[in-house]
Design a protein around this nucleic acid. Structure first.
Lengths: 330, 330
DNA sequence: TTGAAAGCGCTAACAA
DNA sequence: TTGTTAGCGCTTTCAA
């Protein structure tokens, strides 16, 4: 059986109140008594039961993080940063993966709430007024990352649209006139939250229109994007830029093009988004957009904890710096 | 305020015992009463407080996983698998990262224990009798992965030594006689648990000795291994094989060699270990060892849960299949 | 400075 | 079939 406060109390011949005073550095205890208690604590190898403490305190010193999955390098890096920062502040971390399934996500959030986490870091698939009401009802501090929900929710991320716009502008300046854009299926638009993806697409279109590129880009929103690519003929005299909404797609495309013997960037240009860390092992160097994932994690945690401890968010929603990484692929 | 069992009881004009029977499908309740209660539950948006339940049940339906970090792709993949499987069984997951710091690891385990997790999946840095006693004292089901602690602890992983031996044998058969081995600093040997790394090294040495390679390999146990490599002269007529204890090192080495203009495998051979998923984007294809990370995660969770629920481990320690992936780098 | 007792929200054993 | 009550281990208030 585990040693409890009561055991310590009995062992020392004091009350449990006194033991608590010793354990938690509360005033109103004689130094000598305190020492006696603390010795007993060590001797009996007492360890507090956080479950019981949480019940009375109403706080668990636990955060929850809700992510899609950990296949994307960026997510893993983010999680790493979040864990670090959370425990630095004495908080433990629950992790819940939704696999982009809206119902699953709801269940995750519900479970986290039932486990009485003090706050949640949310990369949501869901969106919409109904969902916001749903979140509201938990009355738990929540900070959103990557996917913006609405002005009502604290958010840490980058200006996705502007970032993509900058990237595409760079490509246009290089003289490209034909564009292919590859992104995940956006068919859940309006239902599922694909804010990030929508914004990146908008960024592309904005840049094209502003710069007077009249030919509409070919937009491949398809999981079989490589198959779709097969239909495309590439020509040196009319160079095409393939823009991918994330590096993972760009890598797949790069592999595909290499296989086909299509030269990058001589015959076709390629751009990604994320600057995942493995890019440094690849040639040609992929042109991409970099943003500070770790910092997003740090800031999310710190902001959330401030909210938990002060009752309000001190930082409002934040847009962090992104950076165009000019490689050799375009 | 959150709705409690009492609130429901009052609202329905029944006792909290009855509410509990309705909520948890316990017998001894009239169907009609049950329906009435469940309706109220819905109407008042009641959600159970797991903290309170845990206190009385003595179980939290929570597992903890202790890892080094998430920078290695394999760890992220493992974690992903573990989360999936855990929640499939109704368990939530705490994640704690040690950054390979033995003291930090102890703190993690202690916190997990205090949070009353039902079981722990442990990739430990610590080892030794003292540590085992320390673990023992928590009397929490623990399953170890990657790093073996001792026969006293359930373990899921592969036969690291045999795997490396197979890899090196393959290299020897290709005619290589000079070997360089790159691995992390093993200076904590005896103190920190570097089982995996030790085993891989042993595998290398066993293969060399068995096959009668008399020249001792150059073993670089150094974080600055690229610097060390600079001192080495490569010669076509006396070809060297560089064996890395993990793919991450191999990628760094590959980059370095490319920079130096050293041809792989024409001038030097290279082998990794792990088969991380980004290898498929690289040329030349890296020869490496593959093992089923996800499966390790699944099995660890299932085995642990069985232990939790039955009181004993049904599977004893497991060695899963590994596979030599023959690439073009050696 | 200390002790006694109530109570956090839930479950489970016993009574009715 | 239902209600009552004790208690999980801790903190906190009030009284001594």
């Amino acid at each position: 059986m585990r040693v409890t406060v009561k055991d310590i109390a009995k062992y020392c011949g004091v009350s449990s109140g006194t033991v608590d005073r010793a354990l938690n550095n509360r005033p109103g205890i004689k130094l000598k008594t305190k020492q006696k208690v603390l010795e007993a604590v060590k001797k009996l190898n007492y360890r507090p039961d956080f479950t019981a403490r949480s019940l009375v305190k109403g706080r668990t010193m636990t955060l929850g993080i809700v992510l899609f999955d950990l296949y994307n390098r960026s997510f893993a890096q983010l999680l790493n940063a979040v864990e670090l920062k959370a425990r630095e502040h004495g908080y433990f971390l629950y992790i819940a993966l939704t696999d982009k399934d809206p119902e699953n996500e709801k269940q995750c959030i519900e479970y986290l709430a039932n486990h009485k986490v003090d706050g949640i870091i949310l990369f949501s698939v869901n969106q919409g007024i109904e969902f916001e009401q749903y979140l509201q009802d938990f009355s738990i501090p929540i900070i959103t990352i990557f996917n913006f929900i609405s002005e009502n929710w604290e958010y840490v991320g980058i200006q996705e649209r502007a970032a993509m716009r900058d990237g595409v502008n760079h490509i246009i300046e290089k003289g490209y006139k034909n564009f292919i854009y590859i992104c995940p299926p956006l068919k859940h638009m309006g239902k599922a939250n694909i804010y990030t993806q929508e914004e990146r697409l908008k960024g592309l279109l904005e840049a094209l229109h502003t710069k007077g590129i009249n030919d509409e880009p070919l937009i491949i929103k398809h999981n079989d994007y490589l198959k779709e690519l097969q239909k495309v003929k590439f020509a040196k005299d009319n160079k095409t830029a393939i823009v991918c909404s994330c590096d993972l797609y760009a890598l797949e495309v790069m592999n595909y093009l290499k296989q086909k013997g299509v030269k990058i960037p001589e015959e076709v240009g390629l751009m990604g988004f994320d600057n995942i860390d493995v890019l440094k092992y690849l040639t040609p160097k992929l042109t991409t957009i970099e943003y500070p994932v770790e910092e997003i994690g740090f800031i999310a945690v710190e902001s959330l904890i401030k909210k938990i401890e002060n009752g309000y968010f001190t930082d409002t929603s934040l847009s962090l710096e992104y950076k165009l990484i000019v490689g050799e692929s375009i």
